[in-house]
Amino acid sequence: MRLSARPGALNGVRHLEEIKQMSDVDSQVKRPLSPHLSIYKPVPTMVVSILHRITGAALYFGVLLFAWWLIAAASGEAYFNYVNAIMGSFIGRLVLFGFTWALVQHMLGGIKHLFWDLGYGFDKKFSIRIALLTLIGSVAITGMIWLVAYAIR
C-alpha cells in the first residue's frame, strides 16, 4: 500500500483511521484460497503418502502394545498370561492384525521413499504403479504373516 504517496497521509490521526478502515475491508473481502486436499481426486501416490503418515502415527502409539507385552513377560507368569489372554482375544487379534498391516504398509512406503530420496522412481506411471504395489503388497504380506503365524501353531 502506498500510503505515504497519498495527500494527507502524513496526518497521524487520519493515517491510523485509514489503516483501520482498510484492515476492516480486508477482513470482509472473500479472498481466494489455494487448492486444498479435499478438491483433489485421490490418486494412488497421494493415498499412499497420506497412509504413510497415518500408519506412522498409529505405530507410534501401537508400540505401547509391544512395551506392555515386554513388561508383562518381565513381570512373571501370572501377569504375562493375563496380557497374553487379552492380546489373544478377538479384539486383541484384530488390533494386532491392524498393527501388522500398518507396520508393513509403512515399511513398503518407506522403502519407496528411500528410492525417491536417491532420485529413482519419479516417472508418473511408474510411481503410480509402485504406489498401488505397496497397497496390494501390504495386504498380501500381512495376510501371509498371519497365515504363517496360525500354520505353525
Binding site: V63, L64, F66, A67, L70, I71, A73, A74
Partner: peptide, 13 residues
C-alpha cells in the same frame, strides 16, 4: 519413557 521401559524389560528378560 517407552524406550527405557522396553529396554529394561528386554535386559531383565
Amino acid at each position: 519413557a517407552v524406550g527405557v521401559i522396553c529396554a529394561i524389560a528386554i535386559l531383565k528378560l
